[in-house]
Amino acid sequence: MTPVSAVRPYLTLLVARCRQETQYRAAALFGMATQLFWGLVRIAIFTAFLKAGANRSSMSLPQTVTYLWLVQGMIRAMPWSVDAEIRNLVREGTVVYELLRPIDLYFSWYMRAFARHAIPTIMRAIPLFVAAVLLFHMQMPPTVSAGALFVTGVVLALLLAAAISTLINISLLFTISGDGIQRILPAIANFASGLLIPLSFLPSALRRVLRILPFCSLIDTPARFYLGQIGTPEAASMFAQTLIWILALSWFGRFLILRASKRMVVQGG
């Protein structure tokens, strides 16, 4: 089999899932309105804090406002929930059909997860950023290279989000309900990604730990690229770190799925 024909089924799957996701345009529009509201609330809160002690802040007010808009744009890249379709497959036992297909189950689920994060993120983030730049004091990246680093960072964030999401989906094969990891992992991700608070506002010891974990690559790292806080050489090592996490989590997910398919007990009759 040539490499091209080996990859083709996964690419076809990816394109199909992406097309399906683009159907939810009205939802994206409403979602954008929700995100605008959240952005304005979060900005009011952070502005009040920054005005109380601007000298203690690690970022200027315009930078913080921009960061908070970036958070709102990236929110659909957060690995928050299991794929409801996969949960039903596992509950109803129809997951065996997935195993019958002559393709790798891990990569086919990974492609689903990637489409599920990438398309809604793009559909919401672009109009949101346009509105925020025009109306709500979001800054543009200071240099072209900062913008390019940001785009690369977002692509890596989406690849990483898909890897984490797929791991959560795989946990269904072991627990069926998926209640535990499905709730605990997103809670940690919210804090460690910079979604709740920019990591640079945290005490430095905590920040150092969180910047080793994979989650910071979801929001905090791309946001710092956007703000021009990171030069190209440093960025290279951060890209490498993210890539290592993506590969490690994917390898782990594939290992789990192979193990699960060997000892799978199918529910239902």
Binding site: F49, R56, F201, L202
Partner: peptide
């Protein structure tokens, strides 16, 4: 999980007060 989700939310608020 619920405890952790909101607990970490409060931790973020506490971190803001710690700094500001």
């Amino acid at each position: 999980g619920q405890f952790l989700v909101t607990g970490l939310e409060f931790a973020a608020i506490a971190a803001l007060f710690y700094r500001f």
